[in-house]
Computed example of a mutant assay.
Amino acid sequence: MTRDFAGDRITLSDLGFYAYHGVMPEEAVLGQRFHVDLVCGIDLLAAGRTDELSASVSYAEIYEVAKAAFEGRRFKLIEAVAQHVVDRLFEAFGPIQWIQIRVRKPSAPIPMASGEAAIELHRHRDDR
């Protein structure tokens, strides 16, 4: 089934985290930088009309939940840490209907001169 990721959204781009995710043993010891892009689908009509934060979800709170999820537990795969972040965001914020998350690993232990390794997940609340 094709899912729609259209509509209003709250976007947090290029969030930087330092964590110990990775398959290689040295990644668990040394850690590394990660960059995360989040797009959260939420109806923002009431917030736009009322100018009240209570009609939306605070992007500062989204950030805090994402940071705690990303840094709070070690995963071997960035796919797993991304799913963990998505699960925590859905638990914390009922109005969020879908999430796109991209986790970028600029220092992945592969011999690339420049660039980064990344994954992207697209999840709907009702797919859980």
Rank of each mutant, 00 (worst) to 15 (best):
S56R: 13
A80T: 06
V65F: 04
L53C: 08
L45G: 08
A60R: 11
C40V: 12
F17W: 02
A19G: 06
A47K: 14
F34N: 07
F34P: 06
S54E: 13
G16Y: 00
A55E: 09
Q32F: 11
T50M: 07
L30H: 07
L12Q: 00
L12P: 01
Y59N: 10
E71N: 03
V81G: 02
S58P: 09
E71C: 05
D51L: 15
A55R: 11
L15D: 00
Y59I: 07
H21C: 14
D43S: 15
L30N: 07
V29C: 02
Y63H: 11
A68Q: 15
A47F: 11
Y18I: 07
A66G: 09
Y18C: 08
R33E: 08
T11Y: 06
G31S: 13
V65P: 00
L45Q: 12
P25Y: 01
A47R: 15
A28R: 04
F70C: 00
A68W: 12
I62E: 14
Y59W: 10
Y20C: 10
D14T: 02
G22R: 03
Q32V: 09
P25S: 02
A69Q: 13
G31V: 15
V36A: 07
F17I: 00
G7E: 03
G22W: 04
K76E: 15
A80W: 04
L53T: 08
D8R: 00
V81W: 03
Y63V: 03
K76Q: 14
K67D: 10
I42Y: 08
Y59S: 07
V36G: 05
A66F: 08
R74I: 14
L38C: 13
M24V: 12
D51I: 14
F75W: 08
V57D: 04
V29W: 01
D37L: 04
L12F: 01
A69G: 13
F70N: 01
D37G: 04
E26N: 03
A68N: 14
A28E: 03
L15K: 01
A60N: 09
D51P: 11
T11I: 07
F34R: 06
R74H: 12
Y63F: 11
P25N: 00
K67F: 11
A80K: 04
A55F: 07
S13K: 05
A46G: 09
L15R: 01
G48Y: 05
H35N: 11
Q32M: 10
R73L: 10
G41Y: 01
S13T: 03
R9V: 09
R74A: 12
A68Y: 12
I62Q: 12
K76M: 11
V39H: 14
V23A: 04
S58T: 11
V57M: 05
E71G: 04
T50I: 07
I78Y: 06
M24L: 15
E79Y: 07
V23K: 03
I42R: 07
